[in-house]
Design a protein around this nucleic acid. Sequence first.
DNA 1: GTTCTAGAAC
DNA 2: GTTCTAGAAC
Length: 762
Amino acid sequence: MDMDVEEASAPKERKPVLVILVGAPGSGKSTFCEEVMGSSTRPWVRVCQDTIGNGKAGNKAQCLSSATRALKDGKSVFIDRCNLDREQRSEFIKLGDGPQIDVHAVVLDLPAKLCISRSVKRTGHEGNLQGGKAAAVVNRMLQHKELPKLSEGFSRITFCQNESDVKNALNTYSTLGPLDSLQYGCFGQKNPDSKIQVGIMKFLKRAEVPVAAASRESGIEDPTSQTPGKNNSCCKDKQTFSSIPDNDNSETKEVENQAVGSVGSHANQVSLDDIPTLAFPSISTSDFQFNHEKAADIIVEKVAEFSNKFRNARLVLVDLSHKSKILSLVKAKIAGKNIDAQKFFTHVGDITHLYSRGGLRCNVIANAANWRLNPGGGGVNAAIFNAAGPELESATKEKVQSLSPGNAAVVPLPSSSPLFTREGVTHVIHVVGPNMNPQRPNCLNNDYNKGCKILQDAYTSLFEGFASIVRNQTWHPVGKSENLERKSLELQVQSDCSRNYFTKTDQKSKRDVDHGLGKSKKYKGTRDDSGLTFTDSRNENVDSEHRTERSMTKTWGSWAQALHQIAMHPEKLKDDLLEISDDVVVLNDMYPKARKHVLVLARTGGLDCLADVQKEHLQLLNKMHDVGLKWAEKFLNENASLVFRLGYHSAPSMRQLHLHVISQDFESIHLKNKKHWNSFNTAFFRDSVDVIDEISSDGKAKLKDDDKLLSMELRCHRCRSAHPNIPRLKSHISNCQSPFPAHLLQHGRLVRAPGEPHSNVQ
DNA sequence: GTTCTAGAAC
DNA sequence: GTTCTAGAAC
């Protein structure tokens, strides 16, 4: 590599790397750091919790601030602590927010026995973990480990499962010069499939809550958890460990798999997608027999043209085999070009299994299509249509019937497609390239003048199609620092509001719509004097985005906007919604507080909460109630033992009037605190039937929005017995068979299946 | 709305 | 020592 030439023309950025080491005590983390630091030409700082307090053990905050300082100074950083679970890693990952820092994980996933024997033998270890207790600690830690995933926010993960892997990783980092950067992706993981599958299901929030997490939450006491253990303070991770027998490696593995299955409690923390990524096969070089050398030139030319235009997106050329001629040609030709290795790289793997088998998240894949855009033929086209299911075929047909060579068509992939659920692919771009195969239509008979032109056009269309996807998911793509955009991301809004394939910037943009003017606070407390001013326009079903800034009822935090966004633009999330009509949208509550919990969302602009509802909305309230009933009845058909209640929160946390349709089992890990319980089981919850009565008689609904209601003692909603805390309450309600209080049995406040007890009480 | 975490309660 | 809550931050 000719550094001088490159630096002269376009100097590379000095990009610090934040390497989060992941490994049990004895896995060799400190040794790894020392060896790299001993031979690297890059400035490194090792942040070690065991020594950070003037040579003694410190805390996580000290590590974070020390790492922050070092990164600011442009130094690369090793985080030398166990980091075996996602939560422990997450704050360190955040340090890398922004494009200037690459966050890597190096996983020292060595056999438990090896770690233990090293831990037991050593003396003078910084973390004071040595001798006999080490075995128990290491074993316990390994049982709870969660291997890192790219979705946590890493740009590169290197898995080392034996000494030779470690050696390779050492070499990689030791030779990483100050101006170099490493390829993105997962490296070295031997059998990722099963775990990644769990990971992506969580990622897409399709997975059910694992039993382990649910039972823990239910408050049922687990006698095994009471074992009084020896407490060891090794723990950088501040855990305590009980003494457990020495497991051999195979047992450890089994437990580990269970542990991976039980990270459900973290499902809500699952981070977002990686950088928007287009994976594309080489166009025309397979069945269309285009000359590889010429094709490689064109790929390199077009990649060079486009890759640097992307601020935060990457292109990946994919082929099935390491022996791929086109991959080698492109790799060879790209070497002399000034192309950021993170914005373009090659990948060997099946384009339909990039995430599940390769750990490479690509939200967009290109298909080397035929002009009819049908699934026929072989190769990539057949593979993609096959993997994507009939959804892709119908989505394609809706969009475009045929495509001539040199063109591309972007097709959003329905969320029911296996490629979406399994691989996280949100769009397929069909591309038709030039054909040099006389057996296929439109053969150019070796006319490479035309052929090259068409192939260039094909890549241009492809990359522009990809750019348009990135642009559409990013409302303000230009002139805004990625750093700011990423920092402003809120996971919560993400999970409340949207499908997880949205880019980080997407969320920011959504909030910008509501908060871009930054005015909400100005209107705080002006309800009385200006409420009337806007009354007239409140029930317009259009463009509330600026006007409702002035919602007179209260100010809404940035996290409270998700439902409003959905009500205004349901089409953006249509695959995740249960029903859309002109007046309402029905969706599953993102954090259901019972086995069935859906929201019927009004679509009227400016109607933020019950306080906003007036007589003119009566028809809407009736409609919402009817739709809610319809869904309750649907659920009752599936499970007649459920009981439903329909109602509104007196003071909702989320903006945009929504009716809760919630089953009365309250069996949910998301029901976690007093406020959750009391918001559904005190007068704070206003039954839809009562609200409708009040609006029709008084023109307004009674609000019981006193905070005291939400902090009331916890009482069973059936027998009214009091309980000291949420776990005990949940344990009680899981068994309580008492009839519901008389009040609820009247006026149709409870909705039950016909034939169930009390179902006809009015 | 959720997450995080200090410190109260047990 | 562990569990649980409550308040702040987002």
